[in-house]
């Protein structure tokens, strides 16, 4: 039976400021993550993602609320959780890749982990650099090493805060693949926070959207797509047009003029708004050449939830 790996209940955290109003970082945040699940924590800057992750790790004391791991109350999160916080800033720069892995295994009280270390070095293509000091590794390798150091701790729950931040496209893709394998092949439970919608969409089955310290949405990515029923259309117009009037009423992006044609994308929530846009184009005597229906992306759903910060979707 699948059990709950992490349960966060009514977490509240405020930061007192000297002679200013307190900053509310989290207000009544509740969610759970099932064993083996990969869940994304999404939110704009200052939404409360990192505070939530650090509260789970025990690095920040919440004002109220409770956190349970694997259905047990524990006052020592480190027995259940390992975390990669802020990308590559989790490793010792003067130690080599291997020494870092050995040190973090030792901190967990683990010995005889040499085969595991070798497997991690191989998996992350760090085996040729195992004796290179961490400071001499590329940023991507450092981030892989940081992930390796959290794996060697041997906990079943992994918290990854912005694991692909600052990585190039290829390394980011490699890392996403590793994260997916960790869940599917090794049964790890992963809570991942990221600004990058592509990372969350690629890796996570479920997404929790946080804004202003509150959970705005908590559902499977596909369900959110259905719920918001957002469709992205690509319009091609014959000739050059200024779209200022239309932009006032519609969420238009990537507008450009190439080879005598004006192209733009628009996110529309219903068929009504689609027809309204067509009407407006006709009224403005704009000559429409082609309309393509594109898949909706998590990014549009995210923007919709954040911009209509009225109610929550759970």
């Amino acid at each position: 039976m699948v059990s709950t790996a992490l349960e966060v209940n009514s977490l509240r955290k405020t930061y007192p400021l000297w002679r200013q109003e307190d900053v509310i970082a989290l207000q009544d945040v509740s969610f759970s993550v099932k064993e083996g699940e990969v869940v994304g924590l999404l939110g704009p800057n200052g939404a409360g993602k990192t505070t939530a992750i650090k509260c789970i790790c025990g690095l920040i004391t919440p004002d109220t609320g409770s956190i349970t791991f694997f259905e047990q109350n524990s006052n020592n999160p480190a027995e259940h959780v390992s975390a990669v916080l802020e990308g590559n800033r989790n490793i010792y720069w003067r130690l080599t890749a291997r020494e870092n892995l050995e040190f973090f295994a030792g901190l967990q009280g683990r010995s005889g982990v040499d085969p595991e270390i070798r497997s991690i070095l191989e998996r992350f293509s760090l085996n040729k650099k195992e004796n290179t000091p961490a400071r001499k590794l590329s940023r991507g390798m450092q981030q892989k090493l940081a992930l390796g150091c959290s794996l060697i701790r041997g906990t079943d729950l992994l918290l990854l805060d912005e694991p692909t931040l600052g990585l190039d496209v290829k390394t980011s893709r490699d890392l996403r693949r590793y994260i997916l394998k960790l869940a599917s092949k090794e049964g790890k439970t992963i809570l991942l926070s990221s600004h990058d919608m592509n990372v969350v969409e690629d890796v996570c089955e479920r997404v929790i959207i946080i804004n202003n310290g509150e959970v705005m949405a908590d559902d499977k990515v596909d369900n959110l797509k259905d719920l918001f029923n957002i469709h992205i259309y690509k319009f091609t117009l014959k000739g050059r047009y200024k779209l200022d009037d239309i932009e006032e009423n519609f969420d238009i992006s990537e507008s450009k003029y190439i080879n005598g044609k004006t192209r733009f994308k628009v996110a529309l929530k219903s068929s009504d708004s689609f027809y309204r846009l067509i009407d407006e184009l006709q009224k403005s005597e704009i000559r429409l050449e082609k309309v393509q229906n594109l898949d909706s992306h998590l990014e549009e759903i995210f923007m919709n939830i954040i911009e209509n910060d009225g109610g929550s979707v759970t």
């Binding site: 790790c57 480190a78 390992s82 800033r89 989790n90 010792y92 720069w93 901190l107 967990q108």
Partner: peptide, 18 residues
């Protein structure tokens, strides 16, 4: 400064022991 302090706090031994 190096970002490893939080990792030391994330160990089953208490930080005071470390």
């Amino acid at each position: 400064r190096n970002g490893t302090l939080e990792q030391l706090y994330l160990t089953p031994s208490s930080f005071r022991r470390i």
